[in-house]
Design a protein around this nucleic acid. Structure first.
Lengths: 324, 324
DNA sequence: CTGAAAGCGCTTACAG
DNA sequence: CTGAAAGCGCTTACAG
C-alpha cells in the first residue's frame, strides 16, 4: 500500500504518530515551533513529512475565517509573454509561503467576483489593473484584502515601456513621434502611463510634443488614425502589437513606405508580430518579472514581507524587426 | 445598517428567523423541501432570501469532503473568441446548479495541479484537451471527478471546423487542398480532428487526398511549409489565424498572389486577422457554445443532468475576407 | 513546555 | 414532519 493509496492524513494522524496532541501539531506546523522543546517540534515535523500531511484547506478556512487562496484577476487586455509562465512562477512563490494561486476573470458584472470571493474567502485578491469601485466594494464587504497593482511600480514599468519605445524610434533618426492607444479604454489600461513615457523621452530629446491617436483593431480605424497623423515622417509607439500591425497595414494600403514614411514599434512580441512583412519591431516583457512583483505585493499586503517591488528595465527587451 | 454592513448570515441565523432548526434549513435549502410541510419550507426560503444567506463554502466542504468549486484548466493554445465571455457564461450556468467556476492553467509540472486540487477539493476538474496520464493520476488520488473534453462532441466540432474550411475553399473553385498544423503538438491539440474534417470534405467532393504540413509561427518555417506545398494552385486550411497569416505573408514574400495562387483560411477570427491585407477569411467560434458544452459535461459527470452535448454547426460562423 | 476543550458552519443519520 | 446530536479538520485561548 503506497502513500498515494492511503486516505489523506489528518493532523490527528500526525499527532498520534508523533506522540503529541493535535494542538501541538498545529502550533509547530504554523511557525510556533519555538514554543516547544526542540525534540518535540522535530518529532512533529518528521511525522508530518512521513505521512505527507497537508492540512485540510476547509478545516483551516472554517476555523480562521479565510482561506489560503490568492485570487488573481486576469484583465481583458493583451498579455506580453506567456500566461502559463507567469502563473507557474507566481504559484511557486506564493506556495512557498503557504498560499495557493487561483485565477478569475474580470467580467462586466461584479456578481461573478462577488460569488467567487464569498465562496472562496481568499486571503487576497490580486489585480493587474486598478480595481473598479464596485469591485472594491465587493472585496471590502467580504473582508478580503485587495492587492492593487503596485501602482508606483506598475506606472513606472509602463513609463519605462513608453520611454524605451521612444528611445528606439529616436535613435533611428525619427523626429516626429506619436502614441497610438486602443480606443476602448478598458483594453487600454496602461496606455496613459506609456504615453507619458513616450512624451517624456521626446521632450528630453528636444523634440516637439508627441501626437496622440486611438483606434480599435479595424482597418478603417487604422486608416483614419494614420491619416490624422499626417504621414510621411511619423514614428508611432503603439499600445500593443495588434495596434502596430493595424497601422503598418494601413500605411501599406495608403502607399507609404514602412519604415521610411511611417515607423511603428509595438509591445508584447506576439507570435504573429514576427511574421509580418516587414517584421515588427517590438518590446518583449518578461512576465516572470511581473510574477515576482505580484508575489511581493501580495505578501506585503498580507504583512509577510517588507520590500516594495521596484520597476526594472531588465524585464524589458527590444525585439529588433524592420518596422523602425 | 444595510445588508452589506451586516456580518454574513449563517444557517443558524436563518433557522432563528424562520423559527425552525438548522437541520431543517439545511434540508430545505439542499433540495429536500418535499420532506417538510410546504409552509415550513416557505418560511425557510423566505428567511434565507431576506438575510441574503449564502452557505459557507468551508463549512460545506468540511462536512461533505469536497467543495462546490469546479476547476477549469486553460490550455496552452489559441482561443477562438473571448475568454471573458466563455468564463462568464460557464460561471452562470454552473452557478445555477450551485457550483463556482475557478480557473487554473495547465503547466508543465503536475505539482501545481496537485496542490490546487488537494487544497480546493473541487467537485470536478474540466479540461479542454485530454488529460495527461500524470494529471489523471493526481485527480484520481484526490478523488476528484475528471471531466474530459467531451471527446465525441469535441472531435465532432473540430471535424466540423475542418469541413467548413474545406467547403469554403472548394466553393471558390479550389481543387488542391492542404491542412497546416502548428508544429508543436502541445499547441495543436485539435489539429488531427480538423485535418480529418478537411480530408473528408475533399474526398466527398471527389478531390485528391489533401496535403499536410506543420509549422511554427516563424517566417522561415512558413516559407518552408509553403514551398513544400508547391504553389501555385494550393488552398490551405489552417489550424488557426496565426498559421494562416504566416502562410499568407510567406506567399507574398515569394511573390504569389493571394488568393489567386495561394488561398488560405484561418480559424478563430483573432482581432489582427481582420486588418491583414488581404483580409483573412476565417471561422469564428461562438465560445458561448463551448461554455454550454462544458457546463453540460460537468453536470453530467456529477450526475446532475442527462443530456450529452452535441456539436452544433450554428456555433461556427464564416467570416468572409479576401484570402480565399 | 504541553494538552483538553471549545467552536468555526455545515449536513446527515437517527430518534421521535 | 421536525429537531437534537454528532462530527468533518482545524486552531486558539486557556489551564496546568
Amino acid at each position: 500500500m503506497t502513500q498515494a493509496d492511503r486516505a489523506r492524513a489528518t493532523s490527528n494522524d500526525v499527532a498520534v504518530l508523533a506522540g503529541v496532541s493535535r494542538a501541538t501539531v498545529s502550533q509547530v506546523l504554523n511557525g510556533h515551533a519555538d514554543r516547544f522543546a526542540p525534540q518535540t517540534a522535530q518529532k512533529v515535523t518528521r511525522a508530518a513529512r512521513q505521512l505527507g500531511y497537508q492540512p485540510s484547506a476547509a478545516g483551516r478556512a472554517l476555523r480562521r475565517g479565510s482561506s489560503d487562496f490568492v485570487l488573481a484577476l486576469i484583465p481583458n487586455t493583451t498579455f506580453g509573454g506567456n500566461l502559463q509562465d507567469w502563473f507557474e512562477r507566481l504559484t511557486a512563490t506564493l506556495a512557498a509561503q503557504g498560499f495557493t494561486l487561483v485565477l478569475g476573470v474580470t467580467t462586466a458584472s461584479v456578481d461573478v467576483l462577488d460569488r467567487l470571493v464569498s465562496q472562496m474567502q481568499p486571503a487576497a485578491v490580486l489585480a493587474f489593473t486598478p480595481f473598479r469601485a464596485a469591485e472594491r466594494a465587493v472585496l471590502a464587504r467580504n473582508g478580503v484584502v485587495a492587492v492593487d497593482p503596485p501602482s508606483a511600480a506598475r506606472a513606472g514599468q509602463d513609463a519605462l515601456i513608453g520611454r524605451l519605445q521612444a528611445e528606439t524610434l529616436i535613435s533611428r533618426g525619427h523626429r516626429r513621434l506619436a502614441f497610438a492607444h486602443l480606443a476602448d479604454s478598458r483594453q487600454d489600461p496602461f496606455g496613459a502611463a506609456r504615453e507619458d513615457g513616450v512624451r517624456q523621452a521626446a521632450l528630453e530629446a528636444g523634440l516637439p510634443d508627441i501626437e496622440v491617436v486611438g483606434l480599435a483593431i479595424h482597418i478603417d480605424e487604422a486608416l483614419g488614425a494614420l491619416d490624422r497623423l499626417r504621414p510621411p515622417g511619423i514614428a508611432i509607439a503603439c499600445y500593443n502589437d495588434d495596434v502596430a500591425i493595424s497601422l503598418m497595414n494601413a500605411a501599406q494600403l495608403r502607399g507609404w513606405d514602412v519604415p521610411g514614411d511611417v515607423a511603428v514599434i509595438g509591445m508584447d512580441r506576439t507570435p504573429v508580430s514576427q511574421v509580418t512583412v516587414p517584421r515588427l519591431t517590438t518590446l518583449e516583457y518578461d512576465l516572470s518579472d511581473a510574477a515576482a512583483t505580484g508575489a511581493a505585493s501580495v505578501l506585503r499586503a498580507l504583512g509577510l514581507e517588507g520590500e516594495a517591488p521596484t520597476p526594472s528595465a531588465s524585464a524589458l527587451r527590444l525585439v529588433e524587426g524592420a518596422s523602425v
